[in-house]
Design a protein around this nucleic acid. Structure first.
Lengths: 118, 118
DNA sequence: TTACAAGTTAGAGTTTACTCTAGGTCAAGA
DNA sequence: TCTTGACCTAGAGTAAACTCTAACTTGTAA
């Protein structure tokens, strides 16, 4: 698919996608004869995974690390797994932290509600 | 307490704390005769709340909005409550999203584990 | 009294992740 | 043929949130 469709499907702007390619997050993107990028469903899956990692707070630099291991093939599976496990653990504690913050917020809101009638 | 102690207790650097004062997040900080800042336990509580909002993803600009309402006194309670409620709802959906990402990560890690012996 | 640790200001610099601009190519439709 | 729309590159600009620097003052301890 062309840039327009890929951009629409990934919800990332063409600018951002070119930027991701530039920093090495997207590699081996096909080009058609006129030099335009041509994306595949594999690319779609990979960008979806990038977005997942981003939305869980992983900085692009770490995603790039994972991406580089991926490019080296199967032999890096163990390292990649370790990276994901680390990230999962961080995510877990962040979620726990956020749940605590949520109940603290609820308490504060409750306090405002009670004071409304006073 | 002085800057050093306040910095230690809030876990924010002196630089960051001065920055927060500069942008208006911390107002009416007392000064001692020599011009040094002198913080109170009230300040400690307020910074703790700032950190809570920050850790739940609220940008400083929105925290500043809340802060400005707070400075206007009781009459802004309703507005402040609405702001917090909005934020709580956002936080809730973010947590839900993260929980989904977490299980997707688990699945991916599981996949690596299965492939280890193959 | 002199050195040191802690504080001050204004303003410059940094990092991350985009986001935009300028100047160009190319294919299809009116 | 001319315009329109999509694409390209290199590189500049932006926003958020710090983080650091330079130049200075002040209080205490040796």
């Amino acid at each position: 698919m062309n840039m327009k469709e890929f951009s629409a499907r990934t919800t990332l702007s063409a600018h951002t996608l070119r930027y991701y390619e530039k920093i090495g997050l997207l590699s081996d993107i096909h080009r058609s004869s006129n030099g335009h990028r041509f994306f595949t469903t594999k690319d779609l899956e990979w960008v979806a995974f990038i977005i997942r990692l981003k939305e869980t707070g992983m900085p692009l630099e770490s995603i790039l690390e994972y991406s580089n291991l991926r490019a080296l093939g199967e032999s890096t599976n163990q390292e990649r797994q370790a990276l994901l496990e680390q990230h999962r653990d961080k995510l877990k504690s962040r979620i726990e932290n956020e749940i605590q913050h949520l109940s603290a917020l609820d308490a504060k809101i409750e306090y405002y509600t009670l004071n409304k009638t006073s």
